[in-house]
Simulated scan of single mutants.
Amino acid sequence: MSYTLFIGNKNTDAWSMGPWVLMKQAGIAFNEQPVRSDATESLELKKALRAVTPLGKLPVLVDPSLGSNPSIWDSLAMCEYLAEVHPELNLWPTDRTARARARSLCAEMHAGFQEMRAMCPMNIDARLPSIGERLIHKNNAFCEDLNRLVNMWQTQLKLSGGPMLFGQFSIADAYFVSMCMRIRTYALPVSPPVQAYISRILALPSVAEWIAKAEQDADFFIHETPSLQA
């Protein structure tokens, strides 16, 4: 089986980071196809991507074994597909109750935390503590998102006993890794158990590899970032 994963810039593409980290950490082989996604090349980007997905957005996973329609788009759909195709890897928790909770947390990440994602876009190469401090003091919706995230992680780590959200590394950890990067970049305040969890995430070989490559890419576009324009 030969997967191809189309991803954006490693410094900024949060949605691509999750499936990439999941596949690397789980030992699922794939060909990486980076696609530059800044605004000046948006037409070329959409043209290239629409050859493999109707949305023209990243990331996209291509599995030739699917025949004439080999593409899976949307990061959560990719994770679900990989868990189905590779049941031996236990990408979701094996316990049914834990698995249901893990799916719920990932779905909440997929649909929620919109203020935090908008105001603190992923920018791995940067350190922007002043922006984080300003948001903490002036943006109530942002603070609600951050508090929910911290409480979610802290509660789940207590339930599972760690070291990852559900004990062993799973889709849930891969799905939230971009939030770990935001907390680091913007120096957002979190509890000691959550900070320890973030440190463990950053130490994973797959995450360390992504970060190293992100620091080489290091593209960031201020016009796309509301918090940097204030």
Results as ranks from 00 to 15, higher is better:
64 P>F: 15
52 V>D: 06
55 L>N: 13
61 L>S: 05
74 D>M: 08
60 V>Y: 03
83 A>F: 07
48 A>M: 15
80 E>T: 04
53 T>H: 10
71 S>R: 00
60 V>I: 10
82 L>E: 03
71 S>F: 06
78 M>T: 03
69 N>V: 00
78 M>L: 09
62 V>K: 01
51 A>D: 10
78 M>I: 15
63 D>R: 06
59 P>G: 04
52 V>K: 02
51 A>P: 03
66 L>A: 06
58 L>P: 03
60 V>W: 01
65 S>L: 14
54 P>F: 10
61 L>H: 01
57 K>G: 02
60 V>H: 01
81 Y>G: 05
76 L>C: 06
57 K>Y: 00
59 P>T: 06
61 L>G: 04
80 E>H: 14
76 L>M: 14
63 D>V: 09
64 P>L: 12
47 K>I: 12
49 L>H: 04
72 I>M: 02
58 L>T: 02
71 S>K: 00
57 K>N: 03
81 Y>I: 07
54 P>Y: 09
45 L>Y: 04
61 L>V: 09
83 A>P: 03
55 L>G: 03
59 P>W: 01
75 S>C: 11
55 L>E: 04
72 I>R: 00
62 V>S: 08
67 G>D: 11
83 A>T: 01
51 A>K: 12
73 W>D: 14
82 L>H: 00
74 D>F: 02
64 P>E: 07
62 V>Y: 02
72 I>P: 01
55 L>P: 00
65 S>W: 10
78 M>E: 12
54 P>N: 10
74 D>Q: 12
52 V>L: 09
47 K>E: 15
63 D>F: 08
61 L>D: 02
59 P>S: 05
49 L>N: 02
55 L>M: 13
52 V>S: 10
65 S>D: 13
68 S>Y: 01
53 T>C: 15
50 R>S: 09
52 V>T: 04
70 P>Y: 06
79 C>K: 01
56 G>H: 07
46 K>V: 14
79 C>D: 08
49 L>V: 04
83 A>N: 08
65 S>G: 05
52 V>E: 03
53 T>E: 07
51 A>C: 07
49 L>E: 04
82 L>R: 00
52 V>Y: 08
62 V>I: 15
58 L>V: 07
51 A>E: 15
61 L>W: 04
